[in-house]
Amino acid sequence: MTGTVLVVGGGPAGLRAAVDLADFGARVLLVEKRDQLGGAPVRWKYRSLAPDFTPTEEVMGPLIGFCESSPMVEVHKGSVVEGCEGSVGDFTVKVRNEADGTTTEHRVSSVIVATGFEHFDASVDPRYAYGRAPNVIGINELEAMLKEGRVVGHDGRPPKRVAFIFCVGSRDRSTNPWCCTVCCGVSIKQAIEMKQTLGDVQVYMIYMDIRTVGLWEKLYWDSMEKYGINYIRGRVGEVYYTGEKLLVKGEDTLVRGPFEVLFDMVVLAVGIEPGPGTKQAAGVLGLKLNEYGFIAPRQPNVHVDSGRDGIFLAGTCIAPMSIEETLSEGSAAAMQAAKVLKKTVAV
């Protein structure tokens, strides 16, 4: 019997679970594929988090700091889980360090899977010219620019006219048919930040539906009422680089009018999709993937329950979700792991 919990993935959900378990008095084995903790928000240098523009460090900093320094958390960076045997209360897992190839064995009482997501690679969909034309960027890349406080095109000049294209790699049968749930809110947040940073810029949001659910709605209202951001209902058929500017072709479905307007910069609201880490972890741990490649919980309304006793799920490896939900799921999964610990060892 062991008092350790394995957490796979060092992003928001995994970190939150690790911190809660360590606080609870359990030992945590935190395995992160990359060389850095913090997941997507840190890797892509998110400037702030929707809906309240909280700086990313404020949310992620304490979690990372705790895990890096706590004696209760054993962090394995640049490592992946390679094998898992046993059953609830007593799993034996193999962790391989990708850099030196060494493998270590550990006994854990339960496993929390929090392998997160990848941003959709827009170069897959040729109509947006991403990766081929300059000044076509993803919302993930714009975050870093906003963080630096320097939003400029490839020629070093700030854009005068920017289009955000929603639902890139989302809600499309040829790429990903699901809704990524957060990109509306994130794009709007960025549009506001862009206005704040550049001042003299016209921002156009080309959307099909605005899905700023819950309290995120305030972002949408503010962007329109306080910042004068323009909304055009429609979907873009093609972005064409003229050698100078970007010609965006679409339909304004509210007036049934074709528009072909030149922009200095196009920001693609790239969606959320399961990454290779999720697939790998699911394979090792014997978990089922759903038709889209996310991990399928036993019951779709109960995210934490993976369907295998002693293995729990948290965050965007299950479905697209916001960062506040992800953090809560981390805590929820920690609770499940704690229940296992209570049954098997006295803490």
């Binding site: 016209q202 156009y204 304004d252 009018g257 074709p258 528009f259 072909e260």
Partner: peptide, 9 residues
């Protein structure tokens, strides 16, 4: 043609 080539606020 009726293509909109410019937004004008």
């Amino acid at each position: 043609p009726r293509t909109i080539e410019e937004f004008d606020h």
